[in-house]
């Protein structure tokens, strides 16, 4: 059985080490926070916060306290606030150890597309281009194929890029792959998934 959303999030949480400052994207990456366990992880929200806490209890919402997805959140004892220029200074400056992000497409050179589909409504890249250009390690969490069964792990992205050569590791429902010279290297297979199944679902070159 391929991994489900929560299993992918749990696997992504294994990438995080004690003491890391981390930025989590919207969707499955947000679930990663549920699986960090006892590790001392500080979450960054790029609208200007380090030390992001959980959603507030009903009635405790504060309009001055939101995350980058504009959801109400809470602060922790360690929380620090800062302006957007400072926030992206720490992102661009490589101070954030890792970003875990979703993807529409990723390719064997580490190119990432996750912000626009030509002909569809374009909402904007937000902070995604800054994150992939700046943080220490970019980990993509995604389904290996689209709803038509076509691979989203490609030789070359077809959609407009968010960043070129930026992805370090891919965690999909079928397993874990690293971007290495010449292509992708299989790091781990999801429970019950064979290497043949993973290869069949991958358009990108897989190197040994």
């Amino acid at each position: 059985m391929p991994w489900d959303r929560n299993q992918m999030a749990a696997r992504a949480a294994e990438e995080l080490e004690d003491g890391m400052y981390v930025n989590l994207g919207i969707g499955i990456p947000t679930l990663v926070a549920n699986y960090v366990g006892d590790k001392d992880i500080t979450l960054q929200s790029e609208n200007g916060m380090l030390g992001m806490g959980p959603f507030p209890f009903e009635g405790d919402e504060d309009p001055d306290l939101i995350n980058a997805g504009k959801q109400t959140i809470t602060e922790l004892k360690r929380t620090a606030y800062f302006d957007s220029a400072t926030s992206f200074g720490m992102i661009r400056g490589g101070k954030i150890a890792a970003a875990i992000l979703g993807a529409m497409e990723v390719d064997e050179k580490g190119d990432l597309a996750n912000w626009m589909i030509p002909g569809k409504l374009v909402k904007g890249m937000g902070g995604a281009m800054d994150l992939v250009a700046g943080v220490g390690k970019v980990i993509v969490v995604m389904d290996h194929t689209n709803k038509h069964g076509e691979s989203k792990v490609l030789k070359e992205c077809t959609l407009p890029l968010t960043g070129k050569g930026v992805v370090d590791r891919i965690i999909s429902n079928l397993g874990v792959l690293d971007v290495v010279p010449g292509g992708l290297k299989i790091v781990q297979l999801a429970d019950g998934v064979t290497e043949e199944e993973l290869r069949a679902a991958t358009e990108a070159t897989i190197v040994d």
Binding site: E46, A85, G89, R92, M125, D130
Partner: peptide, 24 residues
Amino acid sequence: PQGTLAERMRAGGCGIPGFYTKTG
């Protein structure tokens, strides 16, 4: 890009007419 927009504002206010960034 969000960080580029923020830095463009900061730079404009700081007398910096342009800057180089790897974003984008």
